[in-house]
Write a protein that binds this DNA or RNA. Structure first.
Lengths: 155, 155
DNA sequence: CTAAGTGCAAAGCATTTGCAGGCTT
DNA sequence: AAGCCTGCAAATGCTTTGCACTTAG
């Protein structure tokens, strides 16, 4: 059962790696390491969380590089950048249509794969004159942990 | 015609002022000035834009105060904070249900009052275990100005 | 009068940039 | 070999904090 997950993530890794090649990016240690991390995690790590996870494995990895690589991945469309209200950017390697739930308290982000909420179309002739490319629905609420903490403080 | 707008914004101002009182907040010069600004503008100013607009009128207004007041307003629910991908927080004094279009290029934010896009319900038993309070749809695309700039650079 | 609110200066964080050297292709 | 990529250190930009003073109610 766990091997299913493992397999899924290594498949995802291969897809990402292929995407890198397709965009003409060199596959450096650092980039590979980041791709692994992103393929495995389904939470939505911040740049710093990724750095912390990797710095021990990838000797001499610098925070700057993590930021720079993530930026590159976003630019070529391998990863998307989620802007949470907490000002720290979070990154998501799943480019399929899905939505996000953000915890108002701690900023944690979870996925919501529920096509009931997908929109049928995009706004066409809106008064602002913007051309619309895409959209994202962000739900907010409380994560299980913060719900618990809230209840404890009530008493 | 212009007086309609003026009237609408002063009505909005009074509503906001009342909200302040209801929350037990002192109505200082600085707060009144910010409320005026927020009632008049329908764009979604950053803290700094508000500061720039006000500093000449309100002698000795400090940037710190603008940040602090906005934070307070958000806390008591008078204003909402929009997190754009550009890392600068933007503020919106319109608490009715509406959506936002963000320019991918320059970060400008416009409103979209189109109830076609309002959701019928909120996700109830989602796998993440979050309780959901609210949602917001963020469209992205290009504002009229950035569309124009893009076209010019093509040639 | 007294608690709440403000200004100033300095600190805090996430993120970016310049530059010299190193690694992929 | 050639140029993309990385590390380091320093800079940047937005936002927050500590503290003494001021103001609203």
């Amino acid at each position: 059962m766990n091997s299913d997950l493992k397999q899924a993530s290594s498949e995802k890794f291969r897809r990402l790696e292929a995407g890198c090649r397709a965009s003409g990016l060199s596959l450096t240690h650092q980039r590979r390491a980041l791709l692994h991390c992103l393929a495995q995690r389904s939470d939505h790590p911040t740049a710093d969380q990724l750095y912390d996870e990797l710095k021990s494995d990838v000797g001499g990895l610098s925070r700057t590089t993590v930021y720079r690589i993530l930026d590159t991945f976003v630019r070529v469309g391998l990863v998307s950048k989620i802007s949470s209200p907490q000002a720290k950017a979070r990154f998501d390697a799943d480019m399929g249509r899905h939505h996000h739930i953000v915890c108002e308290q701690c900023g944690k982000v979870a996925d919501l794969f529920d096509s009931d909420f997908n929109l049928r179309g995009l706004p066409e002739n809106n008064s602002s004159g913007f051309t619309v490319h895409n959209y994202e629905i962000t739900f907010n609420g409380l994560c299980p942990l913060c719900q618990k903490i809230g209840k404890e403080n009530e008493s």
